[in-house]
Amino acid sequence: MKITSQHFSPEVKKPQETEEQTVKVTAESPAAEKAASNAVKTDASRQRMLSWFARVGISPSMMSPDPKKQKHALERRKQILETQKASNLQAVLNIALNVTINEQTSDNLDPDWFFAFSTMAEEIYSPPMQELWGKIFAVEVARPGSFSLRTLQLLKTLTHRDAQVFNKAVNVASRRNNDAVPRILVGYHKRKGLLSLLRRPVPEQINLANVGLSYPDLLSLQEMKLIYTSEIESAEYDEGQQVTWRCVNENISLTSKTSGVALVYYKFTSVGSELYKLVTKSPNEAYLTSIKSVLGEVFNVS
Rank of each mutant, 00 (worst) to 15 (best):
residue 31 A to L: 15
residue 261 V to P: 09
residue 71 K to C: 00
residue 76 R to A: 04
residue 299 F to H: 13
residue 16 Q to D: 07
residue 192 K to T: 02
residue 231 E to R: 02
residue 116 A to F: 13
residue 213 L to R: 02
residue 207 N to L: 15
residue 239 E to R: 12
residue 239 E to N: 01
residue 4 T to H: 12
residue 26 T to Y: 08
residue 35 A to L: 00
residue 123 E to H: 12
residue 254 L to A: 00
residue 122 E to H: 06
residue 260 G to Y: 05
residue 43 D to E: 15
residue 106 S to H: 06
residue 223 E to M: 04
residue 105 T to V: 07
residue 273 S to H: 12
residue 41 K to T: 13
residue 106 S to I: 00
residue 42 T to C: 08
residue 142 A to T: 09
residue 226 L to Y: 01
residue 221 L to D: 01
residue 183 R to E: 13
residue 32 A to H: 09
residue 95 I to V: 15
residue 301 V to F: 09
residue 49 M to G: 05
residue 300 N to Y: 02
residue 297 E to R: 01
residue 166 F to E: 00
residue 260 G to L: 07
residue 71 K to L: 03
residue 111 P to R: 06
residue 20 E to G: 02
residue 260 G to M: 15
residue 204 E to S: 08
residue 239 E to M: 14
residue 131 E to A: 13
residue 253 S to K: 02
residue 234 S to Q: 09
residue 273 S to V: 13
residue 86 A to S: 11
residue 123 E to G: 06
residue 169 A to W: 09
residue 203 P to W: 10
residue 36 A to V: 14
residue 53 F to V: 14
residue 187 G to P: 05
residue 100 T to S: 15
residue 26 T to L: 12
residue 202 V to K: 12
residue 83 T to I: 10
residue 126 S to T: 06
residue 221 L to Q: 10
residue 161 R to F: 13
residue 66 D to Y: 01
residue 48 R to K: 06
residue 34 K to L: 15
residue 42 T to P: 01
residue 125 Y to F: 02
residue 165 V to P: 00
residue 195 L to I: 14
residue 89 L to D: 05
residue 10 P to D: 11
residue 141 V to Q: 12
residue 45 S to D: 14
residue 28 E to Q: 11
residue 190 K to Q: 07
residue 61 S to C: 10
residue 139 V to T: 15
residue 58 I to K: 10
residue 222 Q to W: 05
residue 131 E to L: 08
residue 190 K to L: 15
residue 196 S to P: 12
residue 56 V to E: 01
residue 258 T to D: 15
residue 98 N to F: 05
residue 273 S to I: 08
residue 14 K to A: 03
residue 5 S to P: 05
residue 74 L to A: 04
residue 247 C to K: 02
residue 126 S to Q: 01
residue 175 R to E: 06
residue 18 T to Y: 03
residue 122 E to N: 11
residue 301 V to M: 10
residue 227 I to Q: 07
residue 253 S to C: 01
residue 178 N to D: 11
residue 165 V to M: 04
residue 29 S to P: 06
residue 91 A to T: 06
